[in-house]
Design a protein around this nucleic acid. Sequence first.
DNA 1: AAAACGAGGTTACAGGTGTAAACTATATAT
DNA 2: ATATATAGTTTACACCTGTAACCTCGTTTT
Lengths: 123, 123
Amino acid sequence: MESVKNISESEWKVLEVLWEKPGSLIGEIRTALADSGWSYSTIKTLVLRLTQKGALYTKESPHGKMYYPAVDEDKSRRDETKHFLDRIYNGSVRMLFSNLVKDSKLSDKEAEELMELIDKMED
Amino acid sequence: MESVKNISESEWKVLEVLWEKPGSLIGEIRTALADSGWSYSTIKTLVLRLTQKGALYTKESPHGKMYYPAVDEDKSRRDETKHFLDRIYNGSVRMLFSNLVKDSKLSDKEAEELMELIDKMED
DNA sequence: AAAACGAGGTTACAGGTGTAAACTATATAT
DNA sequence: ATATATAGTTTACACCTGTAACCTCGTTTT
């Protein structure tokens, strides 16, 4: 039950469906992704790849396979977040925020408060 | 001088060098990336690709080409950030933070203050 | 029953990415 | 001047990713 690395952007969307409704049948995944623009084939490929990567597992049911996420949603998000922060902000939440604050409409005072809280948060 | 899309993770590291010291010669880029583990060849490839993508431009100098970033650092970071937020947190800074706060040592009260500021920031 | 549809499996194929070697021309060190 | 290193250019190559098609069984619809 581990952190499976290298989940692509498209695969992530499939995972989201299963976090939302674990045990979905392929047809349900399909309808959940109806407005993705993907063909049924594509969706099956993504599901297959996720399974091969160990990010999904299946159980047989009378109606076909039921698909379950094998990775935790919050954990996966945190992993992605860490990777993102490392990549773009040198691992610093503070740096992320000082950038975000730049095009926000927080007052200077508010911005300062925010930064203090963030510093506290980051140890 | 616009937002060039699709800068890869490796290319990003080269860009960082040039944001830090615009006008670097290839050799300087090389030394700046000494502990990346990349061969000189690899570095040249990355520089080439960035140039082809329009993310760098060059000026001739007596010592060889000088390389300059053609994209703004803060802007690029913000673009990446937006993409990340869309991908992972449904575009919501609030959701990102409610996740980050989970394994931080902020008190409930502080967490609440933080969230308020973030809400204000996001409109 | 014949046609259409869905599930599962296999195969495909182009473009991006990480990672480099090879070749050439020039500059530098010995 | 000769060997070496550097810069610039071209070529390579495997893996990942987006995006499917095709084939084969069943199941459902007409």
